[in-house]
Nucleic acid binder design. Structure first.
Lengths: 290, 290
DNA sequence: CATGATGTCTGACTTTAGTCAGGTATCGCG
DNA sequence: CGCGATACCTGACTAAAGTCAGACATCATG
């Protein structure tokens, strides 16, 4: 009972019964689960029929029948795709949106229910993030995004908060050289966010300058995602983006209070150089030629 | 995406697909899931047919048919119970044990798979324990057990390890008055273990003495189970056991390095008294009249 | 524009899960 | 012993999920 496998199996049992309850509540809306799942996939923005079929693992005949039944209920409309009339697109009607909202409410209620214990709320959420990140590690995608977008701002907020915790003197963004957003957008630079499902769990910025090099800024990995080698993946992607933009020299600054970062840079071809700016926080400076 | 409900739902999605894979692998053994579930319930020691039916939530007719199909396969044998011939017991045949072992191997492999990332192993297990304890909090049972049994020894080991971390001078069991096991067994005392599914997550000992009182010893709650008011439940159960044994006065010692324990005692009718033993570790002493 | 590949749909089918109404043997109790 | 309650079983049924072969329209390609 005390070995790791037994602990995982206990976890499995606990979550299957908790998560299984959702299926039960879905059935309460008087529609078979298969149809409910298709409706929800469409509601979540999947419109391509083949993609939904693939996502839900359905046979094409079965899928077709489920679409028909949802159409008969007046919840969806389908139409051939303009660029390829063999493929079909599905979208919700007004009634379908209402019905989808009802399913969403059930899902949200179930999620709230899992969090019901207020004393444990934060610990529970952190544990869920950790597990979800670990289980979906193969499906973490690195997406180029606007540094002003919601996901990017979330990452930066978490990054600053962490620096505040780890620097003995704290961290005040306004004292640091906050990079201009347009320096981290094409064609001058780029901003990458690591997404696990819908949650941003890491980021890195590539900031263009007018001094013959570009800088790597704001490398951050969520605590729940550490140990998945995500930092390395983000750095690799940032370097690729730099190459695409014709950048041949990269620099970055960091702080010795972040030893894991320094270690990553040293092990991936960066070499230490003298201070090249007057930002008050960094005390370590690196350079890499591409 | 950043609100708690979205994080829980992301966790749900990640876990359902990971755990759902187990059902798929079970189907690989050429038997419907219903039959596989019954076989596994029997393999895990459930033999009473009504109990299995209740556990799996099956209709009595369906259950009967599933038992018949497992019998036809030669995997189980059923017999009327000796004390009540209406009830039936099921047990595995030799072939059934082999088949059960194959399912166990699949379950174990899936559990191992979830842990595959060695760098995160401990963090992942701790997160799983936390979640499993929180989700099954309504089903935590307090069982009276032998203080020398496997579950009790596990709890005591964790308890000692935690004292070692929290006392500035460390903790050495041999210096403390290690209670005699028979003092924590009926009729002199009792030892209670809180079980969540198959994992021990807390304990408390009631130790009989020859001095007109009994002592509460070894109150421990696993980190993953804190915030569930388990300490209070354990203390209530220990007091009930004491009343059953005709004990009217309880004492306990504790240490001010464990503030949450002191707070629990003060809020549940214990009053502080002068030192009543010469154990080197405690510096706080309490008494409660039942 | 003929041809093979692709995506969807339909009809016919099977398996699994689950429900319900009796039926039979056994038990506890007056 | 008789009687109602209990535990299990059987037969008849339904709903849901899934499989498979073939039909049809459309697409990309030579």
């Amino acid at each position: 009972m005390l070995d790791p496998v037994a602990r995982v199996r206990r976890f499995n049992r606990a979550v299957t019964s908790a998560v299984g309850a959702l299926d039960g509540s879905f059935l309460g809306r008087g529609r078979p689960l298969g149809a409910a799942r298709v409706l929800n996939a469409i509601g979540h923005g999947r419109s391509d029929v083949a993609e939904i079929r693939d996502y839900l693992g359905l046979d094409s005949g079965l899928m077709s029948r489920l679409l028909r039944s949802l159409e008969d209920e007046g919840l969806i409309e389908t139409a051939a795709r303009e660029d390829d009339a063999r493929r079909r697109m599905a979208k919700l009607t007004r009634a379908g949106r209402r019905e989808f909202a009802a399913y969403e409410a059930l899902s949200n209620a179930q999620a709230e229910g899992l969090l019901a214990q207020p004393s444990q709320r934060e610990a529970l959420l952190a544990a869920m993030d950790l597990i979800a990140s670990a289980l979906t590690r193969e499906r973490i995608s690195l997406d180029e995004m606007d540094p002003r977008g919601e996901e990017a701002r979330y990452c930066l907020g978490e990054y600053y908060a962490e620096l505040g915790r780890r620097f003995s003197q704290g961290f005040d963004v306004s004292l640091s050289r906050d990079p201009d957003a347009k320096d981290m957008r094409r064609p001058r630079g780029a901003f990458l966010v690591a997404m696990s499902d819908t949650l941003p769990i890491g980021c890195v910025g590539l900031k263009g300058t007018d001094h013959g090099y570009a800088e790597i800024k704001r490398l951050w990995v969520a605590p729940a995602a550490r140990g998945l080698r995500l930092g390395r993946r983000l750095m690799d992607a940032a370097e690729s983006a730099a190459r695409e933009l014709g950048i041949t020299l990269l620099r970055l600054d960091t702080n010795s209070a972040l030893p894991e970062a320094g270690q990553l840079y040293r092990s991936t071809g960066w070499r230490e150089i003298p201070r090249f700016n007057d930002d008050p926080y960094p005390d370590l400076f690196f350079e890499k030629r591409l």
